[in-house]
Design a protein around this nucleic acid. Structure first.
Lengths: 400, 400
DNA sequence: CATCTTTCTAAACACCGCTTACAAAGCGTC
DNA sequence: GACGCTTTGTAAGCGGTGTTTAGAAAGATG
């Protein structure tokens, strides 16, 4: 039933992982600092460091911080060998870039291109792009990089690595992009659904660094939701968890791309807003134009229709997940403070007040690129060593 | 940041926990059987067993199964010393009972009583009840029992152990029943919100045994939801996760007990159904009577109003959590197959089909009593030793 | 240059799980 | 009833790991 033969080596693996995570979180540090901060003895840290350097996760810099006694040699995430590649697939554009283990994306080493029209075209474009970044030397790829992380839109089955359905990019339907890519370039490729990628990225490198209970609600053409609860990304049985956009809020509402009627996604997204304003103005406008349209600035009544549903979404997330922090992401909320305020006001009304008080709500930039990179880095770390999570069922405290 | 000083003993603790869980799941077994089934070597199991017997979690029985070679001595969960107490607080009645570590509740050793009208009355009634079960010898309690698990209704903050708000039992508001009880009787007391208790109980002893991704939707006067995802009970930051009942589905609907309007709970519960039928009949009826009323058997249109919202709830759970199994619990769905069928049919329409296909939906009895018992047993096991969960962020597979 | 502080490592020790070897305990057969 | 067969359970030895202790290394201070 339970597997994995708890051997002695497990301990050293756990400690290696701890050291690595300490450096990931706190930046370069000496062995002594890691020992103090990570709750391990100095020799233990040293041994872990030896292994991490051998595996090219860390490297020793000459840089030594000034101080009283003997200066410690700083250990940092490897910049030489431990680079990874990130790929973000979106409906209109794709992005490819390289990054170091610390998540720093080399801007000069990244490219964007319009999303091709066919799956084969996309696959080939990604392969070409990766090769370009690797300096056009194909054989070099697997030497300079350790893996590729992908952010993919739509409904993604992470158990089998297959995009089940991608409403805005149907060419991915039924495809296994990560596997196909891996076969072509001979590197590990790991795909994450974009909302999940956002979560992993924010947690590893972004605003949610170190947080164990948070949610990210991403409002754009659709409604994306990523949840980290108790330190775990909520994936569900097949990685399809988080589809908040398709809960029904208008029982006989308009038809949604998913086939159902009245999904939250039909009324609480950029697209819904633009559609609404277009009708108001009598001509078709995009989201950006809609936001600056006079009708919008004029009347709260007009924006209310979208915004109040957005508040229902926010409220649902807080009621259902009780996160310590909720990040809101999307131009609709982050461009106009008036809109954000109204969302907050309405959400407060619609949420159980203890849960609402318990939750800090922040606007966030979010970054799928970091997410793609974080996805592969997290995978590499898991491959190296398991994170240790002493864990029960979450029931807590208050004993005698 | 991360604590717990990964010492050598950690390994033995993990293995003790494994042995204990093996026996919990598979019943009495010999050391050899545990070794084979649990993936440990025989000496390791023996050592763990010694410790578990010393801590009175296990005991050795003389009973030996017939077979070829030397018969193994069976190890079972201690019946002598390792008993626990379970307490279920409900709006109308309370229950107290004792159970063994294997979850077997001694029916003759349980009592029920009407829920008192005041908090002090309740506390005293529980204390008395516990004493009664312990044989009226107060000092004996802490010798015969290891702890008390409680199932409490309403919104429960598990971080501080306080009931924040209990709509159907306001005497609990702001109270810390587990802590108060613990102070009085000198035993460890652990409270769980009732929906969470349901989950823990089903997972440890019931229909969800061994499942790592499931949800339980409990439809009664309110809408309770418990989620286990990736093997973890979803509690949120303060244990208040799972409040599906208060998401808004009728933006300008009727007022809910929580202060908001149009909560799912106002339209998709027993109470809502009874209210609906009452209006139909022109007189006030309870749920049971409502279910057998001629109006109900006659027309689908009448029940549809409640049932279709119930389907929205089911659909929301599947869309949001992507569970492998969903247990539906509540007399509304489990008494009339016609109703259940309609819920299923409607839910199927309203759910993303990959997620729906991925999810097995079962009717379930559920049992808060087992939940209360499982809660304290799980806590005791966690105290003894951490469960080991090698864990990443949940991103999976499909590498080169 | 000696002293001080801090870093890092080597050695000794204790703990752990695993493998191997062996004793223990029944069953079948002769 | 004795012997072999099979399985169970334990003792001893080995390799791996973390910790403590002691000491070497490296720079700052006086």
């Amino acid at each position: 039933m339970i597997e994995s033969p708890v051997a002695s080596e497990l301990l050293s693996k756990i400690n290696e992982r701890r050291v690595l995570e300490f450096v990931q979180r706190n930046g370069p540090a000496s062995r002594a600092v890691i020992a103090r901060g990570g709750g391990m003895s100095a020799p233990t840290v040293s041994k872990a460091v030896v292994s991490l350097i051998r595996n090219e996760f860390l490297e020793e810099t000459e840089a030594s911080q000034a101080g009283f006694g003997r200066p410690g040699k700083l250990l940092q995430l490897s910049e030489q060998k431990a680079n990874v590649l990130g790929v973000v697939i979106d409906a209109d554009t794709c992005w490819i870039g390289s990054a170091r283990l610390d998540g720093a994306v080399g801007e000069e080493q990244s490219i964007s291109f319009r999303t091709p029209k066919t799956y084969d075209g996309l696959l080939q474009a990604v392969i070409n792009g990766l090769g370009e970044i690797a300096g056009n030397v194909k054989g070099d790829l697997s030497e300079r990089f350790r893996g590729v992380g992908l952010s993919v839109p739509g409904l993604f089955n992470s158990r089998v690595g297959e995009t089940v359905m991608s409403p805005n990019l149907h060419l991915l339907d039924g495809q296994r992009l990560a596997a196909d890519l891996s076969n072509e370039i001979g590197l590990q490729c790991i795909a994450l659904q974009e909302s999940h990628a956002l979560c992993v990225g924010e947690r590893m490198y972004g605003a949610a660094r170190g947080m164990n209970d948070f949610a990210i609600l991403d409002v754009s053409t659709g409604l994306g939701l990523g949840i980290v609860s108790g330190g775990h990304l909520l994936t569900g049985n097949s990685g399809m968890a988080g589809e908040l956009g398709h809960i029904t809020v208008v029982p006989d509402g308009q038809r949604c791309g998913c086939g159902n009627r009245g999904c939250l996604e039909t009324v609480a997204t950029d697209t819904a807003f633009a559609r609404l304003i277009s009708r108001e103005l009598g001509r078709k406008v995009g989201v950006k134009e809609a936001l600056t349209a006079p009708a919008v600035n004029g009347s709260e009544e007009v924006i209310a229709q979208t915004v109040d549903y957005l508040a229902i979404a926010v409220s649902a997330v807080i009621n259902i997940f009780n996160p310590a922090t909720l990040f809101l992401h999307g131009q609709l909320m982050n461009s106009d403070p008036k809109i954000f305020k109204r969302v907050m006001r309405q959400a407060k009304k619609r949420t159980l007040s203890p849960s609402f008080k318990d939750c800090r709500i922040l606007q966030s930039q979010g970054n799928k690129r970091l997410g793609a990179v974080a996805g592969i880095i997290d995978h590499l770390a898991n491959e190296l060593a398991p994170a240790f999570a002493p864990v029960g069922n979450g029931n807590t405290k208050q004993a005698s």
